[in-house]
């Protein structure tokens, strides 16, 4: 339960509160119509042909999700890679924008590698291509958002987002990285950014490199459980009360 503190609608493990499965925070339903409407308004203000960029229904090149889920009895103890269970559906342009944006959000630094080195976009593609209600809702925000990134990049810098310099990419991100501070014309883009950051981080920290980056130690057998080290106990001002 330690990572779903934001989600009021999570499924909570009934019996063991400490062993609750983790649910990615789900954005309240934002109908595709609303997203489209807002993006259309933005596109109109940019004097772009809105129909070319944002169709009211999935465009001719945009796959409709028809795959089945993994069912109620999938193999639990083997590795399932993105694309194994249903087709990935991001377009090459969307993938390029997503890889670039994930690396701006989760770059290589002293805490660990960049998102692109950890296949984060494969997970994101699996997510927005999945045939389940929560993921289909995210698809309605993330795909138009990725398209918007390229439109915005073109408007400001005359190129697609993935081809911009880091400074140019950050200039766009600065306008959409925090919804309460985003300008009126960037509100929906800011919602997209928030959701994208959430999904990219969900993937990043699911990897062993991500574990190291965040400070998780575990998932390894041990003969004893020793509890917090003395340094932690001292910092908290507590004593270990179990012998």
């Amino acid at each position: 339960m330690s990572h779903n503190y934001q989600d009021q609608n999570q499924n909570q493990e009934p019996d063991a509160f400490g062993a609750v499965p983790i649910v990615v925070n789900q954005t309240p339903r934002l109908p595709r119509r609303t997203v489209i409407k807002w993006f259309v308004a933005v596109a109109a203000s940019l004097q772009l042909g809105d129909a070319q960029v944002f169709g009211a229904e999935p465009g001719p090149g945009e796959p409709v999700i028809t795959a089945n889920g993994y069912g109620k009895d999938p193999l639990l103890n083997q590795t399932h890679n993105p694309g194994d269970l249903w087709p990935l559906t991001l377009s090459p342009a969307q993938r390029a924008a997503a890889i670039a944006l994930a690396d701006v959000i989760l770059p290589a630094d002293n805490l660990g590698p960049a998102a692109s080195q950890l296949r984060c976009v494969d997970f994101l593609d699996e997510w927005v291509s999945a045939p389940y209600p929560a993921q289909l809702r995210d698809r309605e925000l993330v795909l138009p958002g990725l398209d918007w990134l390229d439109v915005e990049a073109g408007r400001r810098f005359g190129d697609v987002f993935a081809s911009l310099t880091l400074a140019q990419q950050q200039a766009i991100c600065d306008d959409i990285c925090f919804e309460p501070r985003a300008g009126e014309n960037f509100k929906t883009a800011a919602r997209f950014f928030s959701r994208f950051r959430s999904l990219a981080a969900a993937a990043y920290y699911a990897t062993t490199a991500g574990w190291e980056a965040i400070g998780y130690v575990g998932n390894q057998p041990s003969l004893t459980y020793d509890g917090p080290p003395d340094e932690v106990l001292a910092r908290l001002g507590v004593e270990q009360t179990v012998a």
């Binding site: 339960m1 330690s2 990572h3 779903n4 934001q6 063991a16 509160f17 400490g18 609750v20 983790i22 649910v23 990615v24 925070n25 950051r197 959430s198 981080a201 969900a202 993937a203 990043y204 920290y205 699911a206 990897t207 991500g210 574990w211 965040i214 400070g215 998780y216 130690v217 575990g218 998932n219």
Partner: peptide, 14 residues
């Protein structure tokens, strides 16, 4: 019941 843990991360926004 209480959940206080540096449990396995990932899958959600930390």
């Amino acid at each position: 019941e209480m959940g206080a843990t540096r449990g396995m991360p990932g899958g959600g926004n930390p």
